[in-house]
């Protein structure tokens, strides 16, 4: 359980960590898709990537932020 982030006496929402974490995961996924060649075959890549990022963010929040 992870509720708040203290940086130099300032408190931040855990989203400050969760959002980059989700970004890193989606970046890795993107690289994997790229290498495996599936990337070219996705319909509307931009939609897919944004949606995937939100899914990852929700997953991270579910795992660490509850």
């Amino acid at each position: 359980m992870f509720e708040e982030l203290a940086l130099g006496g300032l408190l931040f929402s855990p989203l400050v960590v969760f959002a980059p974490l989700a970004f890193v995961i989606s970046f890795v996924t993107r690289q994997i898709l790229h290498v495996s060649g599936l990337y070219q075959r996705i319909w509307k890549v931009a939609w897919f990537e944004v949606a995937l990022y939100i899914c990852y963010l929700a997953l991270v929040v579910y795992l660490f932020g509850r």
Binding site: A51, Y53, I54, C55, A58, Y62
Partner: peptide, 25 residues
Amino acid sequence: KLLRVAITLAVVVVAIIAGRWVWDH
């Protein structure tokens, strides 16, 4: 083509539900 469209749409739908859950949370 149908499968490709379906996969993207499915991910979008899941993202909407997940985003809604994060918002509510």
